[in-house]
Design a protein around this nucleic acid. Structure first.
Length: 151
DNA sequence: GCCAACGTTGGC
DNA sequence: GCCAACGTTGGC
């Protein structure tokens, strides 16, 4: 089983939105970055767990945990001209973008702020705390997962 | 709102 | 294939 961290801007889609969603599940659509796409397509599997991270907001940080309930598959929003994620460069036969389905597991009582993650000596290799971190889907090691849970 | 760090685009 | 211009992300 693998661990991940997935980012979302709370003004776009927050963990509260996920809690209120039907079956507390959503399509993690709209990822348009090749590195993140590769993780979604090749490595994220049903049963994996991920931290839910709020970015670009008052206090950025980890707000809860989700489970991957469907492994990577083509993102239909890329084929929808009405979608803001529309991208005509892919085809259904040869899709460019992928997504997973995620389900709400837990919301932390308090947000775990980025500043605490950055300050922790055992989390210095986390992609999230490195400069220029712009990946919206990134892997977390089992050790890092445990450390973060303990905070 | 600013700006650093990237990723992407397109001319050559 | 290089690289400048441009757009985007995201912390502050």
């Amino acid at each position: 089983m693998n661990y991940w961290l997935i980012k979302s801007e709370p003004t776009t889609y927050s963990i509260d939105n996920l809690m209120k969603a039907p079956k507390k599940t959503t399509h993690w659509e709209g990822v348009r970055n090749y590195q993140a796409r590769n993780f979604l397509r090749d490595q994220m599997k049903k049963g994996d767990k991920a931290f839910f991270y709020h970015s670009n907001c008052e206090v950025p940080g980890i707000v809860g945990i989700v489970e991957i309930v469907k492994s990577g598959y083509p993102d239909p929003s890329a084929f929808d001209p009405e979608s803001k994620y529309f991208d005509p460069t892919g085809t259904r036969e040869n899709p460019r973008w992928f997504m997973v389905d995620v389900k709400f597991i837990e919301k932390f009582k308090e947000i775990l702020p980025l500043t605490r993650l950055k300050a922790h000596p055992k989390l210095q290799n986390l992609r999230l705390v490195k400069p220029g971190n712009r990946l919206s889907v990134l892997p977390v090691s089992a050790k890092e997962w445990e450390v973060i849970l303990s905070l």
